[in-house]
Design a protein around this nucleic acid. Structure first.
Lengths: 77, 77
DNA sequence: AAATATTTGTACGTATGTATG
DNA sequence: GCATACATACGTACAAATATT
């Protein structure tokens, strides 16, 4: 999956879409943490705040639960 | 109302609290827009993103509705 | 017990895009 | 076209929570 920084869809949405797809597919299994912000920023070349915003969307969708100091864990798919 | 940048409560929460109080008191009446981000940043000496985050909280609480290019209007109190 | 590393939380400042008037 | 206002995005920095050494 690729992110288009110039696309119509905001980058944070694109990233959330990617992560959601990874969760739904089981590629990111329940109980496992998402890649850290640092990893996400490097892997998708987005800013940290953008990565955080994307993950927050998934939290709102109750797909992940964030544990400060630990990670963002997949709780459902 | 004052913001304490070193307080326990996050600045964006403090600002949201202040604005909420202004709305509840009728000081910021229904139908009127909140001060703009520029005004908020100057008045409370916070960053623009912080002001935006505070206003977003009020949106979530359905106290205000943001109209892009116009302002953040009080819709309830 | 203490120091270090990792990860999320908050906050800053800045730049650019989009919508409205 | 221009000014105003919100939206998105970047990069950076430090604090707080957690885990490990």
């Amino acid at each position: 999956m690729e992110i288009d920084p110039l696309g119509i869809t905001p980058v944070y949405q694109q990233l959330a879409d990617i992560l959601r797809a990874e969760i739904r597919s089981g590629n990111l299994p329940v109980g496992k943490p998402l890649p850290s912000y640092v990893t996400l920023t490097q892997q998708y070349e987005v800013a940290r705040g953008t990565a955080a915003k994307a993950v927050q969307l998934l939290v709102k969708e109750q797909l992940v639960r964030i544990v400060p100091g630990k990670g963002a864990y997949v709780i459902s798919r």
